[in-house]
């Protein structure tokens, strides 16, 4: 089996470090814009994510998750930390210039198939959730809303939001990794 990009980074192949930018740049940039916002902080955060990703390459295990999922996890973790850190201090923010030009690349396309497969499995798992769980997961995970904001928006107790997020994520993980170790939340068992 061919080594994945992160495995090549972990193995000490310098060229693989740069290739990560074109394969995962769009994904990480999109996540940063969602979770951190359209300001200069997003740029700093993306740089931090990539450095973290390169350093964490040796922790990627293809038996546990696909490489795009691992990358998204590292990115989300760093972006959430970044968002928490930055919301603790006042910040006027600064707009990102819009003159930048997109740069398509073959690397981005070559990672698309693997990402699509993982996304397809996750999407199937999400469809098995109840509609209210799907909505809360979307707001929390994808839109990056705080639990409190979701509770206020949907006019439900904060505890209800937290429970839906917890059970929803556990269920998705179970459905994706059916056949491997399953996390059991007692409240999910009928």
């Amino acid at each position: 089996m061919q080594p994945t990009l992160l495995q090549r980074v972990a193995a000490g192949e310098p060229a693989a470090v740069g290739e990560c930018i074109d394969r995962y740049g769009g994904l990480i940039w999109s996540l940063a814009r969602k979770l951190v916002g359209a300001n200069a902080d997003a740029e700093d955060a993306v740089q931090e994510v990539f450095i973290d990703l390169w350093r964490s390459a040796d922790r990627f295990d293809p038996n546990v998750a696909s490489e795009p999922t691992f990358v998204a996890m590292i990115a989300r973790r760093r972006l959430i930390d970044s968002k928490r850190r930055r919301t603790r201090r006042p910040d006027q923010g600064q707009s990102i210039p819009v003159e930048d030009v997109d740069v398509p690349s073959g690397e981005q396309e070559s990672g698309a198939a693997e990402r699509a497969e993982e996304a397809s499995r996750a999407a199937a798992a999400i469809r098995e959730l109840r509609p209210e769980q799907q909505e809360i997961l979307r707001l929390s995970v994808y839109e990056g809303w705080s639990h409190q904001r979701i509770a206020d928006h949907l006019q439900v107790p904060l505890g209800t939001v937290k429970t839906h997020v917890r059970r929803g994520l556990i269920r998705v993980r179970e459905l994706i990794q059916r056949g491997s170790t399953v996390i059991v939340d007692p409240q999910v068992i009928p």
Binding site: L31, V64, A65, P68, T69, F70, V71, A72, M73, R76, R115, E118, A119, S120, R121, A122, A123, A125, I126, L137, V141, Y142, L169, I170, V172, R173, I176
Partner: peptide, 9 residues
């Protein structure tokens, strides 16, 4: 990892 998969989806 579950949240990352949801994000991709």
């Amino acid at each position: 990892l579950a949240a990352a998969a949801v994000t991709l989806a």
